[in-house]
Amino acid sequence: MADTTARPPVRTPRSRGRAPHKGQQTKAAIIDAALGLASHVGLEGLSIGAIAELMGMSKSGVFAHFGSREELQISVVREYHERFEREVFRPALQAPRGLPRLRALFDNWMRQTSLEIDSGCIYISGAVEFDDRPGAVRDALVETVNTWQAAVRKAVQLAIEAGHLRPDADAAQVAFEIHGLILALHYEARFLRNPDGLRHARTGFDNLIARYQAQP
């Protein structure tokens, strides 16, 4: 935002570019630390004071980047979504459209879930924390989850259009069942510590695809 105060100090182009860059770096570092903390204690465990202590900063220093706890929580949700897309969605786009891409999405999603066994999934923990709490944080969670689920449905629809899945298959239903496998995997692996969770999830996906797969 431009400085509208009277007689603003004159800055060289170099100084104008350097200050925002440093500020963005600090903000990114705060979000990274907050995401790490939220992965273990949930979004509700975040506070300006906790992050300030974690970063070795003053509360006012953190507050300068995030005007409220809610703004910090929303930034963490969006950062988690960006990383999730980078690790799960974008690599799958390298696979051919249709069933190969859908399999890549599921494989990447399973791998991400297995990596989060000792920390936690912001999508899942956030749903538990904010399922009945209207507000901006819940809205941000719903928006990012809906974006991801729409991508899964699109991948299923492309598999139908490619002739890999039956033409009468319901893309929303298939995507729903795939999501259910991931939720079951998270529960089995994180809560029950079942070492067979990944194998069961993969078998479940193979059975699901076999049920909907188009006949040669």
Score class of each variant (00 low, 15 high):
residue 84 F to N: 01
residue 116 E to N: 09
residue 103 R to W: 07
residue 134 P to V: 03
residue 138 R to Y: 04
residue 93 L to T: 04
residue 115 L to N: 02
residue 135 G to D: 03
residue 116 E to W: 03
residue 116 E to P: 06
residue 90 R to D: 11
residue 109 W to H: 10
residue 116 E to R: 06
residue 128 V to N: 07
residue 116 E to G: 05
residue 110 M to P: 11
residue 87 E to K: 08
residue 127 A to N: 13
residue 145 V to A: 13
residue 85 E to H: 15
residue 127 A to S: 10
residue 100 P to R: 13
residue 105 L to I: 03
residue 93 L to K: 04
residue 84 F to E: 06
residue 81 H to S: 10
residue 123 Y to N: 02
residue 131 D to R: 15
residue 112 Q to S: 08
residue 121 C to M: 03
residue 93 L to D: 06
residue 91 P to S: 08
residue 81 H to N: 09
residue 134 P to F: 00
residue 128 V to R: 09
residue 101 R to W: 02
residue 103 R to I: 11
residue 88 V to E: 00
residue 91 P to L: 09
residue 115 L to K: 01
residue 139 D to G: 08
residue 122 I to G: 03
residue 93 L to F: 01
residue 110 M to F: 07
residue 133 R to P: 05
residue 113 T to A: 01
residue 86 R to G: 04
residue 109 W to T: 07
residue 82 E to N: 05
residue 133 R to Y: 06
residue 83 R to D: 00
residue 129 E to C: 08
residue 120 G to Y: 06
residue 141 L to D: 06
residue 118 D to C: 00
residue 130 F to S: 07
residue 87 E to D: 13
residue 98 G to V: 05
residue 121 C to A: 06
residue 91 P to D: 10
residue 90 R to Y: 09
residue 142 V to E: 12
residue 110 M to I: 12
residue 79 E to A: 14
residue 137 V to T: 14
residue 79 E to T: 12
residue 108 N to M: 08
residue 98 G to E: 02
residue 102 L to N: 05
residue 103 R to K: 14
residue 110 M to N: 13
residue 110 M to H: 11
residue 82 E to G: 07
residue 105 L to W: 06
residue 94 Q to A: 14
residue 114 S to W: 04
residue 125 S to Y: 12
residue 145 V to L: 13
residue 102 L to Y: 03
residue 88 V to K: 03
residue 108 N to D: 10
residue 97 R to E: 11
residue 124 I to G: 13
residue 145 V to C: 12
residue 134 P to G: 08
residue 81 H to V: 01
residue 100 P to M: 11
residue 112 Q to V: 01
residue 99 L to Y: 05
residue 107 D to F: 02
residue 84 F to P: 09
residue 135 G to Y: 01
residue 134 P to D: 13
residue 112 Q to W: 06
residue 119 S to A: 07
residue 102 L to P: 00
residue 103 R to Q: 13
residue 80 Y to Q: 05
residue 92 A to K: 10
residue 116 E to Y: 01
residue 103 R to P: 08
residue 118 D to Y: 08
residue 112 Q to N: 10
residue 137 V to N: 09
residue 85 E to F: 15
residue 126 G to V: 09
residue 107 D to S: 10
residue 104 A to V: 15
residue 127 A to R: 13
residue 140 A to G: 04
residue 103 R to L: 12
residue 83 R to M: 00
residue 83 R to N: 00
residue 127 A to E: 06
residue 90 R to M: 06
residue 128 V to D: 07
residue 131 D to I: 14
residue 79 E to W: 06
residue 90 R to G: 07
residue 144 T to D: 10
residue 120 G to T: 04
residue 113 T to E: 03
residue 126 G to L: 11
residue 85 E to G: 15
residue 97 R to I: 12
residue 111 R to E: 11
residue 140 A to L: 02
residue 120 G to H: 05
residue 131 D to A: 15
residue 134 P to C: 09
residue 138 R to E: 09
residue 90 R to V: 10
residue 79 E to M: 12
residue 137 V to E: 08
residue 104 A to F: 14
residue 87 E to A: 12
residue 137 V to G: 10
residue 87 E to Y: 09
residue 85 E to A: 15
residue 98 G to K: 05
residue 126 G to Y: 11
residue 105 L to P: 02
residue 131 D to M: 15
residue 126 G to C: 14
residue 102 L to H: 00
residue 97 R to D: 11
residue 110 M to T: 12
residue 90 R to W: 07
residue 82 E to F: 02
